[in-house]
Design a protein around this nucleic acid. Structure first.
Lengths: 151, 151
DNA sequence: CCCTTGTTTTGAACCAGTCAAATCAAGGCG
DNA sequence: CGCCTTGATTTGACTGGTTCAAAACAAGGG
């Protein structure tokens, strides 16, 4: 399958290197990975890989459109390979888990704010904040022990 | 008018202090100020104010719901007093300017993603990215000098 | 006016991310 | 098949925004 990445990289005008292939593999396995996760993961294939190299690789991938960077408030940046399909994200306030969501109301109603205040808008970014399933359970258990809503 | 802030602070269970009143005044004058702007501005009334104190004040204001923190990707956090009305933001990619927008499609269609993946969503945050009026002009001028679309 | 408790202050520390110079290797060319 | 150009990686130092901890301080109830 690395052949696919090889082609994609070359199509984008990027050289095919081991760090890049490693990072792409990690991203394929972890759809919303932060830089640190990627460094750790990629070292399985390339043990001497440095964080700075990963930052360089990620910047290259993002700049040619092979990856997308998302930056949830208060958390390190995440990277994903799913690009060009106008999807959004659910973020867990408790554990930071991220899940993809397709645009809520079909096409992109979000893309048309009522009053643009003179701005030319080219992208609408939507983040849904909440609690993931696991953290809902945790929160419920904790409130029980404090006297929330016992059985 | 400081009396208003005094009341709001006390209602929220916070003590009324000079740093807090100064920060609130700056926020009223700069609807989307970052921490640094607030420190500088508040020093007009309170010259010895330290950045850490401002961070403390802001955290207190946000925690009781008197202010809201917004964190556009790649920029320092901004703070605003407009809270509780589910509005969103236009952010200029070039200069970072921020403008308010009321929710595009009336109430809150954003609040209902089609598939929540098990998340319990409590807020939908929307950021419209683009160019503010001033930066559109700048961009147009620059492309002219390079040979874009001359007059 | 005192005392309690929440605030501010001071100072240090942290982390994700960035910058610059030097080394290295991808892959076009001969 | 191997040289050479140019882009990529490496190394290392560094920044800016933010947070932490302990000590001094002041708001405001009694």
């Amino acid at each position: 399958m690395e052949t696919t990445w090889t082609h994609r990289l070359r199509e984008a005008g990027l050289r095919v290197t081991r760090p890049r292939l490693s990072v792409l593999d990690v991203l394929a396995a972890h759809p919303h990975a932060d830089a640190d996760t990627i460094v750790t993961g990629a070292r399985a294939q390339h043990p001497t890989l440095s964080p700075q190299t990963v930052y360089g690789v990620l910047e290259a991938l993002v700049s040619v459109g092979l990856a997308r960077r998302i930056e949830p408030a208060g958390a390190p940046a995440l990277f994903e390979l799913r690009v060009g399909d106008n999807h959004h994200h659910l973020v867990c306030r408790s554990c930071g888990a991220v899940a993809d969501v397709d645009c809520a109301v079909g096409a992109a109603p979000c893309l048309s704010p009522s009053d643009t205040a003179g701005f030319v808008v080219d992208e609408a970014e939507v983040v849904f904040w909440g609690l993931c399933r696991r953290c809902q359970v945790t929160a419920a258990e904790e409130s029980e022990t404090v006297g929330g809503t016992p059985a």
